[in-house]
């Protein structure tokens, strides 16, 4: 028997059918979701484009700008800043540790930035060092802002405010209150809407327009730095105005159209980002209220990719416009 055992070739371990853990977790969460929906069924929240204000009294009043309210997107902006600062601190610490190769999270950030830097260098050449910070900052900031919509609690925890077109309120667990489905509309004072504490930053037009303004303005600055006064000839093409009788005038007109194109870039940048992410949040609201169980998970994955792609596209377009500005025609 001993000889048999030693001579016998070792059998390959058969891959057994295992009842994996993860699938049961998924099933458990789906069942829990069903019960949660029976207890408190989700409602389609009140959707508005401008950021919600926490209170009706202004935080401070400035002479030119006017009343200043603290909004939930400003809270999101502060959170984005904090996250980026933490990332910066982690990377800085890892860089100062003197290691040749960064590990862990810092290594991931470094790899991402290296990819971005190489892309910039292959497009912009020796101007890459000037362009790269804008590309990287816009990409990172938009990325963090976009992904914030995936966090549970964002857009769904906040202050209840009395409203004419809201939902009735029901208290649960003793200390919290939630909106529930019900016919309460019309009874002023008894229906409420939710003002979330944190709303996704990219759904605030101020943020996207601000980024677009910075992108376009810095493109002009970098173009001027790289090419000097020649850069302005792109807009005011007076070179052929007197030497070529007809085409010179046409060139001048085309140059003026470049100004329009620069302005339209602001619109394009800001509304592309806002539209994608705002539509994404609305999509999540609608799907969450129509098919409360499981379906929203798939759309969360979709929004994950949309957020990444929009961040990269915003940064990459900025980089390409800047590179074009340095090259000239």
């Amino acid at each position: 028997m001993v000889a048999d055992n030693t001579l016998a070739t070792p059998e390959k371990p058969k891959k057994k059918w295992r009842y994996g853990v993860n699938r049961w977790f998924v099933l458990l969460f789906i069942i829990l979701g069903v019960f949660a929906n029976r207890a408190f069924s989700p409602i389609l929240p009140h959707i508005q484009l401008p950021a919600e204000r926490y209170s009706h009294t202004p935080l401070l009043t400035l002479p030119v700008i006017g009343d200043f309210y603290w909004t939930n997107t400003l809270t999101a902006a502060v959170l984005v800043d904090l996250i980026l600062l933490i990332i910066a601190l982690v990377v800085r610490k890892a860089l100062n540790s003197g290691k040749q190769v960064l590990e862990g999270f810092a290594g991931a950030v470094e790899a991402f930035l290296e990819m971005i830097y190489n892309l910039t260098e292959s497009t912009a050449g020796h101007h890459a060092k000037k362009i790269f910070p804008y590309f990287a900052t816009i990409t990172l900031m938009v990325l963090v802002a976009n992904w914030m919509e995936l966090i549970p609690g964002v857009d769904s925890i906040g202050i209840l405010e009395p409203s004419s077109h809201g939902y009735p309120v029901e208290s649960f667990l003793g200390f919290a209150e939630t909106l529930v489905k019900g016919e309460g509309a019309g009874h002023e004072g008894s229906t409420y809407t939710l003002i979330p504490y944190v709303r996704t930053l990219s759904t605030d037009l101020n943020f996207t327009v601000g980024l677009a303004l910075i992108s376009v303005f810095m493109t002009q600055v970098i173009g001027l730095q790289a090419r000097g006064v020649n850069y302005l000839s792109k807009f005011f093409n007076v070179k052929g105005l007197f030497s070529k009788p007809i085409f010179g005038v046409i060139d001048f007109g085309v140059g003026l159209l470049e100004i329009v194109s620069e302005v339209s870039k602001i619109l394009s940048f800001s509304f592309r980002l806002l539209g994608n992410i705002f539509a994404g949040t609305v999509l999540l609201f609608v799907i969450g209220s129509l098919v409360p169980v499981f379906a929203q998970s798939m759309f969360l994955m979709l929004e994950f990719f949309v957020g990444l792609i929009q961040a990269v596209v915003f940064g990459m377009l900025t980089m390409m416009f800047m590179a074009q500005a340095t090259h000239g025609h």
Partner: peptide, 14 residues
């Protein structure tokens, strides 16, 4: 929801 104050805040933030 576009407001000069918020716009400036966002630009400075950036």
């Amino acid at each position: 929801g576009l407001n000069l104050g918020y716009l400036l805040v966002q630009i400075l933030n950036f």
